[in-house]
Design a protein around this nucleic acid. Sequence first.
DNA 1: TTATAAATGTTATATTATTACATAACGTTA
DNA 2: TAACGTTATGTAATAATATAACATTTATAA
Lengths: 132, 132
Amino acid sequence: MQKVHSLSKNQKIIFDLIDKSGGPMKAYSILFNVQKKGIKAPLQVYRALDKLVEIGKIHKIESRNAFIACQNSSCQISKATAFSICESCENVSEISNSKLSKYLSNFSDHSGMKYSKYNLEFFGLCKKCKSK
Amino acid sequence: MQKVHSLSKNQKIIFDLIDKSGGPMKAYSILFNVQKKGIKAPLQVYRALDKLVEIGKIHKIESRNAFIACQNSSCQISKATAFSICESCENVSEISNSKLSKYLSNFSDHSGMKYSKYNLEFFGLCKKCKSK
DNA sequence: TTATAAATGTTATATTATTACATAACGTTA
DNA sequence: TAACGTTATGTAATAATATAACATTTATAA
Ligand SMILES: [Zn+2]
Ligand SMILES: [Zn+2]
Ligand SMILES: [Zn+2]
Ligand SMILES: [Zn+2]
């Protein structure tokens, strides 16, 4: 059961931009793109990004300092994310694989630590780039 | 088979510092700590870090912008890394679990992409912090 | 309505990382 | 050993990413 969050003005502007872009976007590139809509300062962008990450509408690609719209409606509020990243063209896509997410969500090691969250990033060459 | 790399002066100073610290260190904290040894500029630190990451002596904890010494001698040159991170005390440890690494190294999805590398970060509360 | 939380606006600043250019040390082999 | 290519170093400047602090406004709900 997923709580419905109605986005605020800035959150909506920024989410729509990222979502329409279809790929990962960096904070300052977002800032540049929304300045015509009245969002003028980095902090306004980062605050919206923080909230959007918190409610699972977007995810941060940690290795790239970039943000991508969730491509997986069943994503448990950003608590379990996996991405595939092409190291040549920088294309990113969210991996939605129930076996993988089950495996990782249930993973535990000898440390006695119970994990409530994970982020996995795979790297390689996408089909296109491989065939070049 | 692992190639033996002899570290240069700066690389050795910086690796020793990180290794002795026993945990993750941030670049500018490293810089501060090695200034008495003559390493004065950020770039000198980042260059050493880049090289140490490349040869697998350290890993970058992407979600923390920090660097930790490899705790796993069998780590395949930083191509397959997994960490457990306590969100309370920020303790980080490298996970060495052959089932996990086998599972992830062999993972492939419908995208046709063959992954050559991955990084996984688990988050939760460590034993200590859980019992507080 | 009134209180509370959430969001916004603005300025300044902190933190993380790279560009550009010059020089030095090292390893190979002619 | 001399010449060459490669790797490492030094230094200054700057770019890119992110947060602190404070004032104000808007939304939500008791
Ligand atoms: Zn998602
Ligand atoms: Zn590609
Ligand atoms: Zn390792
Ligand atoms: Zn802890």
